[in-house]
Design a protein around this nucleic acid. Structure first.
Lengths: 112, 112
DNA sequence: ACGTTTGTGTAAGAAAACCTAACATGATTT
DNA sequence: AAATCATGTTAGGTTTTCTTACACAAACGT
């Protein structure tokens, strides 16, 4: 079994630091579109104390994917359903991995 | 001889996308300090069409280093000199590497 | 020792960027 | 036919950023 590297939580790619104007520039989407996709629960920017949205590079990448799907005629609602399924899958995998880890800890091959 | 991988130019780490407010938050430096270090030619943010500064994660890292040196009593002027020397060194290395490449191309061991 | 540079804070006024809410509209769905 | 979707646009308001200027203690150079 192959273990992936744990995603570095301090990773730059996930840091929410980009303003909507720049996101618009990077993606080619209008600010209206970007805010609308948030309304449809497809992206989740953070906010500054003052209330301005801040996105990560991962968000930017996802926005591009979303835009592509929409261009292919997929509705935001469907995209959202896909996302939920994806998330569930990942959760299940994580769960399985955890169980596996516990089994290994008790009965598995010792690595030391 | 070991060749490094060419730095991905589309790398997010080098993309200038962060506003000064966020940089201030990330580094703990005041906006005044950040602008001053630019005045002393230690950082080089890009500008939006409207004139707002945009920094990269690399810039952020460098700002932290700069701040540390200053805290150690090093003056911006000296820091700048170090930077210039560093840059020259890299340029020389690149130059040497290029020459080496040309020599290899003519007289070196063929790789095919 | 004295004048100068350094590094930083703060204030003022203006411009840029962002926010929400609302109305409009053509295309799809239902 | 009515409702929903996806997007544009406008309006008024707030936040963020910009430059310039003045202040001042600490460090530096001569």
């Amino acid at each position: 079994m192959v273990y992936e590297l744990a995603a570095d939580p301090s990773s730059f790619k996930e840091k929410k630091v980009i303003t909507i104007g720049i996101v618009s520039e990077l993606t080619g989407l209008s600010e209206r579109q970007i805010r609308y996709y948030e309304e449809r629960k497809l992206v989740f920017p953070e906010r500054t104390p003052g209330g301005s949205r801040r996105y990560s590079f991962v968000d930017v990448e996802q926005l591009v994917e979303i835009a592509n799907k929409i261009e292919d005629g997929v509705q935001t609602y469907e995209i959202r359903q896909e996302m939920i399924k994806e998330k569930k899958k990942h959760k299940d995998e994580a769960h399985k991995k955890m169980i596996q880890g516990q089994l290994n800890a008790r009965f598995g091959v010792r690595k030391y």
